[in-house]
Design a protein around this nucleic acid. Sequence first.
DNA 1: ACAACCGATGTTATCGACAACATCCTAGAT
DNA 2: ATCTAGGATGTTGTCGATAACATCGGTTGT
Lengths: 383, 383
Amino acid sequence: MLSITSVVKGQINPERPLKAWATNAPRPADERTAVNTRADPLGGGGAATRGKAATIYDVAQAAGVSHQTVSRFLRGFEGIRPETRERVVQALEDLGYRPNLTARSLKSGRSHRIGALTHEISLVGPSRIVEGASIAAREAGYVLDIVSLDSSNPRAIEDSLALITQHDLAGVLALAVTDEMTRAFAATAFRVPAYVAAESEGVPADPRGILSRVGLPMLVAHLAELGHRRFVHIAGPSMWSAARNRVRDYEAALHSRGLQSVGILHGDWSAASGYRAISELAQVPDATAFLAANDQMALGAMLALKERGFRIPADVSVVGVDDIAEAAFFDPPLTTLRNDFEGQGRAAVFQLLARIGNTEVAPMSVPAPLLVIRRSSGPAPQR
Amino acid sequence: MLSITSVVKGQINPERPLKAWATNAPRPADERTAVNTRADPLGGGGAATRGKAATIYDVAQAAGVSHQTVSRFLRGFEGIRPETRERVVQALEDLGYRPNLTARSLKSGRSHRIGALTHEISLVGPSRIVEGASIAAREAGYVLDIVSLDSSNPRAIEDSLALITQHDLAGVLALAVTDEMTRAFAATAFRVPAYVAAESEGVPADPRGILSRVGLPMLVAHLAELGHRRFVHIAGPSMWSAARNRVRDYEAALHSRGLQSVGILHGDWSAASGYRAISELAQVPDATAFLAANDQMALGAMLALKERGFRIPADVSVVGVDDIAEAAFFDPPLTTLRNDFEGQGRAAVFQLLARIGNTEVAPMSVPAPLLVIRRSSGPAPQR
DNA sequence: ACAACCGATGTTATCGACAACATCCTAGAT
DNA sequence: ATCTAGGATGTTGTCGATAACATCGGTTGT
């Protein structure tokens, strides 16, 4: 258990003035480069930093202009005389001005926060999605307000939505979605754009957009080419649309090749559930290929199969989905489908920003799924 | 790749009025229970919900009182005549009022957001810490503004800190900390309480507070009792204080038993680095026990050792730290030390809240580390 | 040469909530 | 019956920023 070391931050003098006022404003080109140049030996900034935060009024007074002129400068307005501009810049730096985003968004009605509701962020998938989203948001000048649902608390969704609707956000995102969350989301009246990032279940405009639609056939093809004919799927929890999609696309892929599914087992994404799915069976299905809906369940399933005396891949092949970082070091290393979680998070943020009206975001290109062949899959045994 | 399904939220009538206005205010006792009672058949609220959000002025007008009376009610002021109170409650519900937290914090100078700066949230540890923090924050009525550092971007820390300092936050947290981050954090002048949640390196008041201080001796004792005498440590990146602590406590634990470390290898927390640490060695050290600083590196090391012909645990024992969910399903299942990541996150939030002045938080009890013995450790081979 | 005009800047109102102070009304004291 | 204390409520100012409008000095057109 880590202990918590506190760093009490008084108004310590900022060694490196952050020049945060320049962050979101269209700034003169030469500003960008010179962040570390001001080596102020404890003077100047000290006085200003000590008390309360400087406002545009303070800056205005220091520069001998009106607060509005300061505001104009900050917002990138062009028509300011060079000498005036000079004085404002100077005052800004001297006082170490930082915009008060609260006041800004109160007046402008715009905020730079995105609410992100997510399930089980401690799972690998969701956490990577959140990371991608967080980084994309930061790059666009937003921060992500993360509300992670505690699945042990039945009222969590309600509470979280109540929390989210109060804060004023630029938009709301649902990441890593279960049906429950989708429903609660749809029933809530947000006053801002809201998006649910989920594997769509209908017929999507761009089928590349669904990992399982394109990826599962690749997995099945790989196994079929190795001679496998009898398959078992270890599915995720059916309240996750991602889990349902994988079941559907698994069956479709088999069907289109005239192969058969020997059975579908159910897990909850965890390695433990993959292990139980196999080990609790009275008898292991007569299949040669096991396709788990994610790598963790594949890991658990592999252990259970080995304990039952199956050799992998000599007797049975096991494949997963996601290509988590550890999959290459399972024993045997796992054949799987690479899933670009970070990309999903980015894409979700970009989609939301586009709807928010931020036109500067580039449309996301959807990376194609990638089949990663390792040693957990091999030729089907001859009977 | 998931596709993103948008749910365009207009001002749909809220099926279940969230009564969010009651969330943070000391409310009359009977309010708590009656959330779903108002079955308003599309009347009343409709008009108000359609346009912009209702303000206390709108509510005041609807109730025929002054906005201040509404404000008083919301803040739990007692001296309001029952009939007036009644009208206010009615108007509040009819309009589906939600407080504008932006305006509130502008005036009150207080916010209910906590900024959390974290590294590599996609690692298992950090993501679980963040989850614990997020849940604890939500329970206390705060949300976590997560800023995840993109390690590929050298200016990420600066950018992130600039971003954080602008937003108005109740406090700032650094989770899963590297030295770089600690330094940048210390050099920044926040205007609010800031805490760095890290394994402390000095002599802590409560030694139970450090996982490795208590836990590594347990691991070493376990292995020593099995007859192991020659140990190798696979360390984390040295810029993480957690990694340094583990090295230090590993050495101390060996020393106190008169045992010797045959070597310290270095990884980066990933399974790949654990694999490389062993596989790239010209010759595997003559040791019987390998102690990795986390489970992922243990996984990689196990694979490399097996590939080099070592049997686990017959020839060598391998143990990890953290007890991630998958560790029980490695082959062999990994002996490790349970690490309460979520608890760390909670603790960090509680500590911060305490400093913020929120007196309602209970002090955290620090769970003792737990040795989890599985099959990757066994009796040392007889030479 | 006078007015319309324009760029640069200042003044005032505004966002939504909270807070200080002002006011009104009623009940108890004299 | 009049005064007063005090509870209940209304009015105005404030937080820090943005927006609309006003103003000032100097051009430019005719």
